[in-house]
Design a protein around this nucleic acid. Structure first.
Lengths: 247, 247
DNA sequence: GCAAAAGTGTTGTCCTTACACCCATGC
DNA sequence: GCATGGGTGTAAGGACAACACTTTTGC
């Protein structure tokens, strides 16, 4: 290919991109935000990180943490940014749940939001900004929130309930070392059920994904439990590939 | 409350909405589209409805069906509209999968898209517009597509594989009356596995969700199979509420 | 009568569930 | 020594995987 051919091709490519750019320029645009349900676990309760709504119309109501998405920012990056700004943490588990688009979901006009869910170890970080009464709120005790945030939170909670039965996500909410009791409390809090202690322990024992760190609990007013950490490596290697029908 | 109080309250409310509207007016806006992976089942193969990309830069490549979202249109409604425009069907199964936001996913600049997945009975409708070579394409034989549509399709396919193991979605792809062989072919096509015939039939028999319609296949060059329809009512009543840990 | 697919049962293994008692520690 | 939760085993039932032969139909 000679130089002329090559620059001709380059020109054609540029023209095609210009066409595409013109096309996109005509697309209608909408305000897009990201809202994060940041879950934590403390005092045997499932918590979510909330602020007071900054809209006067929702005075007194709680709101998830959210923000506009910035120019050329991926949705995942926006969610991570929000999380980092509020908790100082990155590299935590974060996943997109779904979008919410009811035209009247924001009193100021149409705003579409993409909900994210994240699992955070409350002990591992300090809340960065104490504005807007940022705090960990008990999930069970919420009934009303600003915008459609209660619906979003409910969706995220259900999503989490399903996920922790399929993946060991719960470990993101616990300290590095934890007792089987803590692990079971976590599952019971998220799933809102009571589980049989022996069967729960047997189940985890049979998976062989917990490593006994040869330490025991401290400062408990009863027989201390053994501490374990999770064998992430082994889990990664042995993720179950399930084929079956179950409904 | 007298009339003054009432109109005062109304004014205050309007002021708060005006505040919120002003706030939203400052939000950055992005072009937002919906892309649909419309799945069908024909000749024992999983198919997806595609068109040739209308962007010259992707000349020759296939594209999912998509469109801009309109003013005050919900995402679900946009997806249903696209489906209706192309297939003439509504009231079909449709679900949001997730959003795709890579800044370079559209050559014309930033466009965020929300992917939807739908399951369509190919026999029950006529394709509406034969522009852009609209056609049912074998899913397995695709490797490259316009935009990030191959990634979107792959995500939707995986999503479908998971869903049909948890819900009887596959029935949306089959005729009202179907044989167990057809049902098994469908599962094998979607999951891309071979299943044991006896165990498959036993599994469905034990669920007791199929109604024997006392008819048999027609026009087959071998012993005809019995036809069944699905007991949606019973399924709705008895959806399994699963609590367990499986990873 | 042959080709092609329908239809059907058993067995072993594994997983799940239900259930009760002793043990270690702090106070 | 008592209160509190830690730790453990077993038996029954149910689900799943592997496996082969007979039946019905069209041609």
């Amino acid at each position: 290919m000679n130089k002329n051919d090559s620059s001709k091709l380059k020109n054609e490519q540029e023209l095609l991109i210009a066409d595409a750019t013109a096309l996109v320029g005509e697309y209608p645009k909408v305000p897009l935000t990201v809202d994060c349900a940041l879950f934590g676990f403390e005092e045997n309760e499932l918590k979510v990180l909330l602020i007071r709504s900054d809209l006067e119309i929702y005075e007194g109501l709680w709101s998830l943490l959210g923000d506009n998405i910035k120019d050329n920012e991926e949705l995942d990056d926006a969610a991570n940014r929000i999380l980092k700004e509020r908790t100082g943490m990155d590299d935590v588990y974060l996943d997109q749940v779904r979008s919410f688009s009811r035209p009247d979901r924001h009193p100021g006009g149409r705003v579409i939001t993409v909900a994210y869910c994240s699992l955070i170890n409350i002990q591992h970080h300090q809340l960065k900004i104490h504005d807007h009464e940022l705090h960990w709120h008990n999930v069970q005790s919420l009934t009303e929130m600003a915008f459609d945030h209660f619906e979003i939170l409910t969706t995220c909670h259900k999503w989490l309930q399903k996920r922790i039965q399929e993946h060991p996500l719960g470990l993101n909410l616990l300290p590095d070392k934890f007792s089987l009791r803590e692990l079971q409390n976590l599952y019971e809090a998220i799933l809102n059920v009571r589980l049989d202690r022996r069967n729960f322990r047997k189940k985890f024992a049979s998976m062989d994904l917990l490593i006994d760190v040869n330490e025991i609990e401290d400062d408990v007013p009863h027989r201390p439990g053994k501490l374990y950490k999770f064998n992430f490596e082994k889990y990664e290697k042995s993720k179950r590939k399930w084929v079956g029908i179950d409904f």
